[in-house]
Deep mutational scan, measured.
Amino acid sequence: EDGINLEEIREFAKNFKIRRLSLGLTQTQVGQALTATEGPAYSQSAICRFEKLDITPKSAQKLKPVLEKWLNEAELRNQEGQQNLMEFVG
């Protein structure tokens, strides 16, 4: 629908959760960090719904690039050390 690749979103949601957990981050931490930079659309409950795919494809499509960018950045910081990650997450 609307050129939205559901399979891709499903895959990303699954990987997002795995990668988030491997960084040792909670949904709350991700939500707080993103709410600070991106606004309330990225709250803990939004992250939770995204991971469960309990949102419309359109919403998922909107969240995905922001979550992807944030997660990549978080992983980079983590490679530089846990301290850097925690500063990034705030």
Rank of each mutant, 00 (worst) to 15 (best):
K14H: 09
F50R: 03
K17S: 02
Q44N: 06
E7I: 02
L67P: 08
D54A: 09
I9P: 00
K64D: 02
A74Q: 06
E11D: 07
I55W: 02
E68Q: 08
Q32K: 07
S45C: 06
A46N: 13
F50A: 03
T26Y: 07
R19I: 00
L23T: 01
T37F: 05
R49I: 03
L76P: 07
A13Q: 07
T26Q: 07
K64N: 00
E11K: 13
K14R: 10
G81L: 05
A46M: 13
K69F: 05
R49H: 09
G81T: 00
C48S: 14
D2P: 01
V89Q: 13
I18D: 13
N5K: 10
E75C: 04
F88G: 12
V66N: 06
N72I: 08
D2R: 13
L21K: 15
Q29S: 04
A36S: 08
K14G: 01
K64C: 05
E73R: 08
E68F: 04
A74H: 01
S22G: 13
L67M: 01
L6I: 13
A74I: 01
Q82T: 10
I18Q: 15
E38P: 03
E7S: 06
L71D: 08
L76S: 11
L67T: 05
D54Y: 13
E87S: 11
E68N: 13
Q32H: 12
S43Y: 07
N78Q: 10
I4W: 05
E38V: 10
A13L: 00
A13C: 04
K64T: 08
G24P: 01
I9E: 00
L6P: 12
L34R: 02
F12Q: 02
L21E: 15
V89Y: 05
I4H: 04
I9H: 02
T35H: 06
E38Q: 12
L6S: 10
E87K: 13
D54I: 09
Q29T: 04
Q32C: 10
L71W: 04
E51W: 02
Q44Y: 12
P65N: 06
L25C: 02
Q79C: 12
I4P: 06
L23I: 03
A74D: 01
L71A: 04
L63P: 01
L21F: 06
A36E: 11
Q27L: 15
Q79P: 05
E38F: 09
E68R: 01
G24D: 03
L34H: 00
R77M: 11
I9F: 10
Q32M: 10
G39V: 02
P65K: 10
A60Y: 08
E87R: 11
A74W: 06
G3K: 15
E87C: 04
K64S: 00
N72P: 07
S43T: 08
E8G: 08
G24K: 08
N5C: 08
I55T: 08
K58G: 11
L34Q: 03
G24W: 00
Q79S: 13
Q83N: 15
Q83W: 06
K14Y: 08
L53E: 06
N15K: 14
E68V: 00
L85Y: 04
R20L: 02
S45D: 15
A33Q: 12
G90F: 01
Q82Y: 07
K62W: 05
E11A: 08
Y42V: 13
R49C: 05
P65M: 10
K64A: 08
N15C: 04
E73A: 07
N72R: 11
K14A: 06
L23Q: 07
A13E: 00
E1G: 01
P40V: 14
Q44K: 14
M86S: 15
Y42P: 03
K64V: 12
K17E: 02
G24I: 00
E87I: 00
N84L: 06
F50M: 06
W70E: 08
T56M: 04
L71Q: 04
Q61K: 13
A36Y: 06
G39P: 00
S22V: 09
Q27V: 12
W70L: 05
E7F: 02
D2W: 04
F88I: 09
P65R: 08
E75H: 01
E7M: 01
N78Y: 13
N5R: 07
G90D: 15
M86T: 13
A33F: 10
E68M: 02
A41Y: 10
D54W: 01
V30E: 01
E75Q: 04
V89C: 12
L6F: 15
N84W: 04
K14Q: 08
L71T: 03
K52H: 07
T28W: 11
G81A: 11
N78F: 15
L6E: 11
E51V: 03
E1K: 11
I9R: 02
K64L: 10
F16K: 08
E68L: 02
E38R: 07
G24M: 01
C48H: 11
Q61E: 14
Q83E: 13
R19A: 03
S45N: 12
P40C: 08
N5S: 11
Q32P: 03
G90L: 07
A33P: 04
L6A: 09
V66F: 09
E87N: 14
Q44S: 14
G90Y: 13
M86Q: 12
G81D: 09
I9C: 05
L21P: 01
D2M: 15
S22M: 10
Q61P: 05
I18E: 14
F12N: 02
N15M: 12
Q83K: 14
L63Y: 07
N84C: 14
A33K: 05
R10T: 09
V66G: 04
L23V: 00
I18W: 08
F16A: 07
E75N: 10
Q61D: 13
R77L: 09
L67F: 00
G90S: 10
E73S: 05
G39N: 04
P57I: 09
K58F: 14
A41W: 05
P40N: 09
L53Q: 10
L71S: 05
I47W: 02
Q82K: 13
E51P: 01
C48R: 15
V30H: 04
E8L: 04
G81H: 12
T28A: 15
L25M: 04
V89D: 12
D54T: 11
E1T: 07
P65L: 03
G3R: 14
N84P: 12
L34G: 01
E68Y: 03
P57Q: 03
L25E: 02
G3M: 15
K58A: 14
F50Y: 10
Q29L: 03
Q83S: 12
I55A: 07
D54G: 04
A41N: 14
V30M: 08
K69C: 01
E87T: 09
G39F: 01
Q79V: 10
P40Q: 08
N78C: 11
K62L: 13
E11N: 13
N5E: 11
L6T: 09
A60R: 03
I47C: 02
T26I: 01
A36D: 10
Q61L: 13
K62T: 11
L71N: 04
R10I: 10
D54V: 03
A33G: 04
G90H: 09
I55L: 14
G31P: 00
K58L: 10
L63V: 05
G90E: 07
Q83P: 13
N78H: 15
K17R: 14
E38S: 08
G31N: 03
Q44F: 02
G81R: 10
G31Y: 05
L53Y: 03
W70T: 03
S43H: 05
E7D: 14
V89P: 07
A60D: 01
S22F: 02
K69S: 10
K69M: 09
G3D: 15
Q83H: 14
S22I: 10
I4N: 13
K14D: 08
D54K: 09
D2K: 14
L21D: 09
K64G: 04
I18V: 10
S59H: 15
A46W: 02
G39A: 03
L21S: 06
D2I: 13
Y42K: 04
